[in-house]
Amino acid sequence: MIRRFGESPETGRKYTRRVGAYALLPQGNRLLLTCQLDPGPDLQLPGGGIDPGESPITALHREVYEETGWLIAAPRRVGAFRRYTYMPEYDLWAEKVCLIYRARPVRRMGPPTEAVHEAMWMEIADAVHLLGNEGDAHFAQRHLQGL
Score class of each variant (00 low, 15 high):
residue 74 A to P: 00
residue 78 V to N: 02
residue 69 G to E: 03
residue 53 G to I: 09
residue 49 G to R: 15
residue 66 E to S: 08
residue 7 E to G: 00
residue 61 H to L: 12
residue 1 M to T: 07
residue 44 Q to S: 08
residue 89 E to A: 11
residue 46 P to I: 09
residue 41 P to Q: 13
residue 39 P to R: 12
residue 68 T to H: 05
residue 33 L to N: 08
residue 63 E to Y: 05
residue 96 K to P: 00
residue 42 D to S: 13
residue 5 F to S: 07
residue 25 L to V: 05
residue 26 P to E: 04
residue 23 A to K: 05
residue 6 G to T: 03
residue 15 Y to F: 12
residue 57 I to T: 15
residue 132 G to I: 08
residue 22 Y to H: 15
residue 45 L to T: 12
residue 86 Y to F: 15
residue 50 I to V: 14
residue 69 G to V: 02
residue 47 G to R: 10
residue 24 L to G: 07
residue 57 I to A: 13
residue 49 G to S: 15
residue 144 L to C: 07
residue 107 R to T: 10
residue 127 A to E: 05
residue 130 L to T: 04
residue 141 Q to D: 13
residue 145 Q to R: 13
residue 74 A to I: 00
residue 75 P to L: 09
residue 2 I to P: 11
residue 98 C to N: 15
residue 3 R to D: 06
residue 72 I to V: 10
residue 110 G to H: 01
residue 31 L to I: 06
residue 84 Y to V: 06
residue 79 G to H: 09
residue 80 A to L: 05
residue 29 N to F: 01
residue 59 A to Y: 08
residue 43 L to Q: 12
residue 2 I to V: 14
residue 98 C to P: 02
residue 87 M to L: 15
residue 142 R to N: 09
residue 2 I to Q: 05
residue 108 R to T: 02
residue 109 M to R: 11
residue 14 K to T: 12
residue 15 Y to R: 06
